[in-house]
Design a protein around this nucleic acid. Structure first.
Lengths: 115, 115
DNA sequence: CAGCATATACCGTTCACCGGCATATACGGC
DNA sequence: GCCGTATATGCCGGTGAACGGTATATGCTG
């Protein structure tokens, strides 16, 4: 019952698809944007993850288009994928809160940040 | 300059040490508690991570005690480790906020949760 | 026409984590 | 007295997500 935690690139791929159906390359662009330029998904990572998420039932093919002779395969979140992502959001929040509270309590925050 | 993201077990180990210096076994217990029983650190994961974090300068040995003929090696966060953990907290919060906002906007939240 | 953006796909390598085992002492139950 | 469990650290083989690079193709720009 306990799913293994999503890793960051996978989490961001699901987040990209939570906004609207996107094709692979558009996912790369969105992930780059929402991660403040930190995560530049490699082709190998992206398509392997899409296949894996699809076989796990977290995403599914929305439609396929051909634009300028190039195939675009759009993916969307499934209900299962949305549930999974929501669970991960809760977990992330709890972990961030716990760590933030402890850093503050211990006076370990380097710059007086609000973390 | 861009550090690779911390994975969940590693993040939780740093969080355990952010409260107070702890020895390995105490880290396992604390991580089990703060992860709601989800993450039961394996010995291999724990001591490998402690060695890695130490050589990366994120933690250091606080002291060593012998209790009932058993060695206890206590670790504590370094200033660098606290900075790193605070950065991760910020990143987790941003990611959780982005994903939560999108799930809500898309009406994809399964249970009307607050995620 | 060279280089870049778009777009998908494959493949070898790396490394954190998993799972199990080894070692050792103390304590409680039977 | 012995077995199982808790405490406590350490080693080792295997897995799998992610990395980094390459292949394939078309269209746009300099």
């Amino acid at each position: 019952m306990n799913e293994p935690p999503l890793r960051e690139p996978t989490f961001l791929i699901l987040t990209a698809l939570a906004e609207e159906p996107r094709h692979g390359y558009a996912v790369v662009e969105d992930v780059l944007r929402i991660s403040d330029g930190r995560i530049r998904l490699r082709a190998g990572t992206l398509y392997a993850a899409l296949d894996r998420l699809r076989s796990d039932g977290l995403i599914e093919v929305d439609r396929e288009e051909v634009v300028q002779s190039r195939l675009r395969r759009y993916y969307r979140l499934t209900a299962l994928g949305a549930t999974r992502l929501a669970d991960e959001v809760d977990r992330l929040r709890r972990h961030a809160d716990t760590a933030g509270r402890r850093l503050r309590a211990a006076g370990l925050l380097p710059e007086g940040g609000t973390a």
